[in-house]
């Protein structure tokens, strides 16, 4: 009897849900289209390139004895364009001297399925870059947290006017392009930059800062610190003042209040902040390039240079494979971090 009743009410519930979800679907349509075109399709393309090879071939056409010949020859490392022309003529049974070449070029096209690109990702250079990226972004995330947490706490406890001003100061650098900000840091840390000039003035030797791991991590922390502060601040400022009063009332000193109340309640903000700093840090290429003068190669740099190579040697495919692996690593990290927030996902990202 109760079972039937429960079933009936369940069906009513689902009907209602369908109704609302239809309306929601219509509302979501533009967003779904947008994410399909600009998120899903690019990801599928990355997957496609990561698992396919690039085939190079010579496209050669020539005329000889009033006849037109079109010929395609597979490219090989020891085969030059001239060699390919000779081969094409020879294949047609025409002597090279008689042939008038109308077109001869090296072309590329996507070939079949391959796992070779993924193997390339496991190459020593690539492995090193990934490990470095992971360690650097881990360090940058940890340092950001250490700086941001007390800052966000102080921010959430200060007066409304002072909060506005401080928020403005945090946001202000973000109004400037990240490339400009990083470039500025490069200028500051240079061997004859502001800091070294100041050191020289004090009679201290020039310190090489650019090109060190510290400089790269500094660049990451500087650029992504606001992404750590903001979510933590948001969660902290939402903590009801009466909770803090209740803690006072029950006998908390400030340390106990922080440890037993504020810290557990701000976990969702911390998780968001960790993800929002870690993810862009691990995949950055510009910061490492500028702050290390190109001496430290992170996985982002490697991907960039591979893709810049374009088709030659299948650079795009290897770059895509690396991106894919990086994406999986980030996804796993994000998932693991979200596990720590048993919350309903109030501050969850991704």
């Amino acid at each position: 009897m109760t079972g039937a009743k429960a079933g009936a009410s369940a069906s009513v519930l689902t009907e209602k849900k369908e109704k609302t979800s239809l309306g929601a679907k219509l509302l979501n349509a533009p967003y779904l289209l947008w994410s399909a075109v600009f998120i899903v399709v690019p990801i599928l393309m990355v997957v496609f390139y990561a698992f396919s090879e690039t085939v190079g071939y010579y496209e050669i056409s020539f005329t000889a004895g009033g006849r037109e010949y079109v010929c395609e020859l597979p490219a090989a490392e020891d085969l030059t364009l001239e060699g390919a022309k000779e081969q094409a003529a020879a294949q047609a049974g025409v002597s090279l001297a008689d042939a008038t070449f109308t077109h001869a070029s090296l072309e590329y096209r996507s070939g079949g399925f391959t796992l070779a690109n993924l193997k390339e990702v496991w190459s020593p250079a690539s492995r090193r870059a990934m490990l470095l990226s992971f360690l650097y972004s881990l360090a940058a995330t940890a340092i950001s947290l250490v700086i941001a947490y007390p800052f966000a706490y102080a921010l959430s406890r200060s007066g409304a006017k002072s909060q506005r001003i401080q928020m403005l100061l945090i946001m202000l650098p973000m109004w400037m392009n990240m490339l400009v900000r990083t470039y500025s840091w490069q200028q500051i840390l240079e061997n004859n930059g502001v800091i070294n000039k100041a050191l020289a003035f004090l009679g201290l030797g020039p310190a090489t800062m650019l090109g060190t791991s510290g400089a790269v991590i500094l660049g990451m922390v500087y650029n992504y610190l606001p992404y750590m502060i903001l979510p933590i601040y948001t969660v902290m400022s939402k903590i009801d003042v009466s909770l803090l009063e209740a803690a006072d009332d029950l006998g908390c000193n400030w340390l106990q209040k922080l440890w037993r109340l504020i810290l557990p309640l701000s976990v969702p903000g911390i998780i968001s902040g960790l993800i929002m700093v870690f993810v862009p840090s691990i995949s950055t290429f510009y910061i490492s390039q500028k702050m290390s003068n190109g001496m430290i190669k992170l996985v982002g740099d490697l991907i960039e240079s591979k893709i810049k190579d374009q088709w030659a040697g299948g650079g795009l495919n290897v770059g895509a494979a690396m991106s894919l692996v990086l994406m999986v690593i980030i996804l796993v990290c994000t998932f693991v971090m979200n596990r720590f927030s048993d919350d309903d996902g109030g501050g969850m990202v991704v």
Binding site: S242, L243, A246, L250, L265
Partner: peptide, 13 residues
């Protein structure tokens, strides 16, 4: 003394 707050102020975690 101890206080019972208006909206209880129970610790949600």
């Amino acid at each position: 003394v101890n206080t019972v707050f208006q909206r209880y102020a129970l610790f949600p975690h």
